[in-house]
Structure formats: C-alpha cells, structure tokens
C-alpha cells in the first residue's frame, strides 16, 4: 500500500469514528461532563519489526480533553514521550464506552487513533498508532477520579522505515491518569 492510500484510509477512519461518536453523544442527553485528563504512560514493547523482542520502549506524559455523555466518552489531546528513536508527540483521538459501573468505580474500554510526529530536525517524521485499552476508573469525589489502564498499541513510522530502517512496534500502553471534571450538567 503506498503512503497516500494509507493516509486516505487513516483520515477516513478518523472521520467515521468522529461521526459515530458525535451521533451517539447527541442521542443521549442525561448526563454530560467535560473533563481534563492527565496521565503517565509506560510503553513496554513486545514485537519489534514483527520479531518477538520484549523490552521497555519508553514513556510519555499525556493531557486530554474528554467529553462524556452517559456511558460514551470521546476526547483528544496530546501525548509527549520518548523512545529509542528520540522524543515524539502524538495527538490521541479516542472514543470509549463504560461497560460496568458502581457508585465509585467505572470499567471502560477505549479505542484510540494516534497520529503523531517523531521529533527530528530539520523536519519531523510522521508517525501513526492505534490502540485499544481497558481502564479502571475510581471516582474519588464528584470532581476528581483516578484511573489505571492498559492495552495493546501498534505504532509505525512509514517514511522513516523507507528512508532509514524498518521501524514498527507492537506492544502495550499502560499507565495511570487522573481526571478533573470542569463542567457537568444533568438533564
């Protein structure tokens, strides 16, 4: 698959996800929240260039703005981290669903698309990643919650793989995050 076709597919997927999430959010209007989530990610790798090679592959800090409508969550933000190739920035676009909840605990699953940049000079390399994760969220009070999450993540750097050396990674993304509700309404 050439680069342009891959890019078109990625853009189309992001657009479809956005439409689905917006529609779901528009249908149910009982409880809506706007949240800031900040977290610390760890990236243990499993397969490097499709070869089984477990090992640590870097860390990142994240900040995202999330919107929750009943059980549906969507959001976007920034993830700044590092790997053995240097520093990188991802712009995670995510959608999730609460599959079980009690008064204090929520269990949710998320799907994330991660367009990003490997920060090199004179120009950065485009990176792309996809991830699914399961998250356990503990609501400390009405405003603050704390989460643990983990799930598989695939990342690739298409042009770097062509110009320099093959570079793709299938591993895990695991971490902790805290969420602050900045606006909440109940209809």
């Amino acid at each position: 698959m050439d680069g342009n076709r891959a890019m078109r597919k990625i853009k189309a997927t992001i657009f479809i996800l956005f439409i689905i999430c917006s529609s779901i959010a528009a249908e149910s209007q009982n409880k809506q929240s706007l949240m800031i989530e900040t977290g610390l990610n760890f990236r243990p790798g499993l397969f490097y260039n499709w070869n089984w090679e477990p090992g640590y592959n870097g860390s990142a800090i994240t900040a995202s703005l999330n919107y929750q409508n009943n059980k549906f969550i969507m959001g976007g933000g920034l993830e700044a981290g590092y790997s053995y190739l240097g520093f990188d920035i991802f712009v995670p676009i995510k959608t999730g669903f609460v599959i079980a909840e009690t008064e204090k605990i929520e269990f949710l699953i998320q799907a994330v698309i991660l367009p990003g940049l490997l920060l090199t000079r004179p120009y950065p390399y485009f990176m792309i990643g996809i991830e699914t994760s399961a998250s356990l969220k503990w609501n400390i009070n009405d405003k603050i919650s704390f989460s643990l999450f983990a799930g598989p993540r695939y990342t690739a750097i298409p042009v770097y793989s062509i110009n320099v050396a093959p570079e793709n990674e299938l591993g895990l993304n695991a971490g902790v995050s805290s969420t602050f509700i900045i606006n909440q309404s109940k209809n």
């Binding site: 800090i61 900040a63 700044a80 240097g86 520093f87 990188d88 920035i89």
Partner: peptide, 10 residues
C-alpha cells in the same frame, strides 16, 4: 508539553 518536545528534536 509541545515546547519541551520541540526543543528536544534529534
């Protein structure tokens, strides 16, 4: 985050 990352380009 953005500023720190951009200053650390390889």
């Amino acid at each position: 985050l953005t500023t720190t990352s951009i200053l650390s380009c390889s």
